[in-house]
Write a protein that binds this DNA or RNA. Structure first.
Lengths: 326, 326
DNA sequence: TCCTCACATGAAAGCGCTTCCTACGGACCC
DNA sequence: GGGTCCGTAGGAAGCGCTTTCATGTGAGGA
């Protein structure tokens, strides 16, 4: 079932079929009707490979995740897919997690899409620079600006400041931050904001490195809470750490929100169902994904040629884990 | 940067380059070395469209979700992507949720992949039958067998029976099932199992239709708990409904696990962080995805031509929301 | 020494589409 | 009524690759 069959059925040339279908050049109404009738009768759908080869376009976007576990990325993907498909593009996903050669995987992916969205620390900067230099539109999400790539991020600074001030207002003084600022710019920003917010009240928080999962949260929090200078507030770099920390606090008999405040980041579903409910920061993840698709589309279609850098606001969500409220 | 450039650089014909790269025919060691050197120097990577057109293959799999929200599907996708990419295939995702014409979207997707995985009720049976009749390998997940498609599911029957018996053992007698069995075979299976488990103890549960989200869970549970014959156990078709039901119970001052038991299904992250922690059923979602990729690959490569139908075991996870345990 | 054969290689024909270039009419103008 | 121009349509080239078919080369046998 090729364009030749349709052309033969409609009694026209293949060029005309192509034009009628794509609207790339004027076709008389009568001819268009004949073509469309033939297409319908034959159930013709253009071969993607053929189109792709001839038109040098893929009608597809890629999206690269460090990994897909956790609710965070799923939401981003959802927003991305929704918008991309509305713009007529398919979505190819790639998770670099646990992959032997992420760079090569990303390069391969780059050969079959018109543009690429990269989330976080998936590949080194030089790979991104190469891709953009090659002319491929790239959008980085939750990652510092690099090369000619567009970038989108959630601005955590003001929310982190607000969080710091809020904790100080509750009277907490010995604040520990759980997370590794040097490993991720996002975490660094949160750390900085919290520090600034607390600084206004003359409080100097400490920082303890921690991986992004529950088990690490439990382990690190347990060590801190059993230590000599027990903190009275644990500010965690994400919700999973915080949920793990709540477990640790409960295990040593501390009342979360009373004896020790615990806060997270991301507002995953578990955050509002935890007891006490977790104070956290909500990120517009679906919007992040949708915006990435849009920004990428502008580049692909050539509607824009200068880099665009967007920053989305985040919201502090105060619940009970940072102290009960009147 | 095409195969011609490589051929010129290596001083051979393009056919030889193709053979050397794909191993489709013998090439002398010396020639192969020359070709590989040229490839490395030029940084050549074959055009996907070209390969795809000539070889009539896409080296890509599709996966179609009803929607991507919720932790459930993200895990399936993760397992799928991991295995598919290990098998050398890219993954194209499509979420039919909120789409004006899911059938057409799926058909379009089908034109650019070598095989397709469909989750749940994304498109009508006749579409699947068409696709398989056309020769496209299709695997359905969490959906009844259809046409020549392979199928993979999680067996919820025995876990549901166990759940029913467990609740009866706790002494609960007025059991309400929240979910719509007629809308989904999965839910029907859970309903049936719970009913059978309770039936052994002479208990006849009721069923109340409910959508798959928290808000619906809260609404339906609130109505039931305020009704004339207040149930003492709510068996929910998934965790989100159950988490919503917990909220409803708390709002009317009932102690979950004491005054009313509440159970879910899926074991999402929030289930173990809820207080009381949610009794639920764990499904091997990542394995489901990985198995789908493998089963699909066997069909694509032609290693298998007869349909395969797999059923994976699920586990009852007993926590505190169904009554405290000694 | 000549012939056969296996093996390695190149030329060329597609794969299904887009698009440039050319050709054909009919309408319009002088 | 003849020439010009515009709108429409077809022929054919080419996108980058795979693969068939034909050819050349050296090793081995007679």
């Amino acid at each position: 079932m090729t364009i030749y069959d349709v052309a033969a059925r409609a009694g026209v040339g293949i060029a005309t079929v192509s034009r009628a279908l794509r609207g790339s050049a004027p076709v008389s109404d009568a001819t268009r009707a004949k073509v469309l009738a033939a297409v319908a009768e034959l159930g013709f759908r253009p071969s993607h490979a053929g189109t792709s080869l001839a038109a040098r376009t893929h009608a597809a976007n890629g999206i690269v995740f460090p990994d897909l576990s956790g609710p965070y990325y799923a939401e981003v993907l959802l927003g991305y897919e929704e918008t991309a498909s509305r713009l007529g593009r398919s979505v190819l996903v790639l998770a670099t997690h646990g992959r032997d050669d992420p760079e090569s995987s990303v390069r391969d992916l780059a050969r079959r899409v018109d543009g690429l969205v990269l989330l976080g620390r998936t590949v080194p900067d030089h790979v991104i620079e190469e891709l953009t230099a090659f002319g491929l539109p790239v959008v980085v999400v939750a990652r510092p600006e690099v090369g000619a790539a567009d970038s989108i991020r959630a601005d955590g600074l003001s929310a982190a400041r607000a969080l710091g001030e809020h904790l100080a207002g509750h009277g907490f003084r010995r604040i520990a931050f759980l997370g590794s600022p040097e490993e991720s710019p996002d975490v660094a920003e949160r750390w900085r904001g919290v520090r600034e917010g607390l600084g206004k009240h003359g409080i100097e928080p400490t920082v303890t490195p921690c991986l992004f999962d529950e088990a690490s949260g439990t382990r690190v929090a347990a060590a801190l809470l059993a230590g000599p200078e027990r903190p009275d507030a644990l500010v965690c770099a994400n919700d999973e750490i915080a949920l793990g920390a709540i477990v640790a606090a409960e295990e040593v008999g501390l009342r979360v929100g009373v004896d020790v405040a615990i806060t997270g980041w991301d507002d995953v579903m578990a955050a509002r169902h935890a007891r006490p409910a977790l104070t956290t920061v909500r990120q517009p993840m679906r919007t992040l994904g949708a915006l990435a698709a849009e920004v990428l589309d502008q580049r692909i279609t050539g509607h824009r040629t200068t880099p665009r850098h967007e920053s989305l606001a985040t919201d502090l969500v105060v619940r009970d884990s940072c102290g009960t409220h009147p």
